[in-house]
Amino acid sequence: MSTVILLFATGLGLGAIYFLVASGLSLIYGLMGVLNFAHGVFLSLGAFLGWEVAQMIGSNTWAGFATSLVVGALAGAVFAAVTERFIVQRLYNRHIEQVLVTVGLALAAVALFDGIWGTDPEFIRGPQWLAQTTNIAGASIPNDVFVTISAALAVLLSIVLFLKKTRFGMVIRAGVENRSMVMALGIDVRTAFTLVFTIGGAAAGLGGVLASHYFGYVSPLLGQTLLLYAFIVTVIGGLGSLLGAAIASVLVALMQQFANFYLDGTGDFAVVVLLALVLLTKPSGLLGRRQV
């Protein structure tokens, strides 16, 4: 029983990280039709800069940890905003080319990170408490899992509030449904494009810092690895659906954890099988509205 609880808790933690990456991907795709291969790079940059700052302040202090979260989110947001404004937007409405530039950018950025921080994973540590465990019904749950889950929930809640309560949010929701009608109402939808990239980048950067604590290391490939699962999550959840991304993140991560433990390390296959099943039965994903 305690194993089940442990797997469930760590699965939720992993799902929380997937969600932090997938939420932005899904919003960007939903609004702009862009598959953003550079999203993993936002995450890696957040993780690296967060770790650099944490070391400056003191990696085992709470101040260091908190600052690293802020810096990670900021780094992701700025990088994403610049990417959208100066690269992606130049190729307005040319979806394949937009994918291609993000691929090139990801390649160049990962290589640059390799050059700066080296290709080997750098093992990191945070405040003592994060590495300790809390006993829940006989299972020793690593404390960083709680932080990760809370952060993802906070991000989910903030994005939902932003989308529901602000005019920008309303424009984004409307644009995900029907971009050209939004423009026909006199709204310059490109501002919304930059905005979703910024929000997505911030979530990914934050996710990067949390992922580095969850896995215990940072590396230039951290983001690229997580990006693959985030892609699968967004397809399963339904492209453009934030809630779908949240549900699919948890589903995929739990499935992976349990299959890895009980079915002899076959977690990755279980995920791909799930993806194939969803595509065969409902190609638009769990909560996807329409086939684009």
Partner: peptide, 9 residues
Amino acid sequence: LFILGTLFV
């Protein structure tokens, strides 16, 4: 790969 990626972009 940095040079190739940039060239590609």
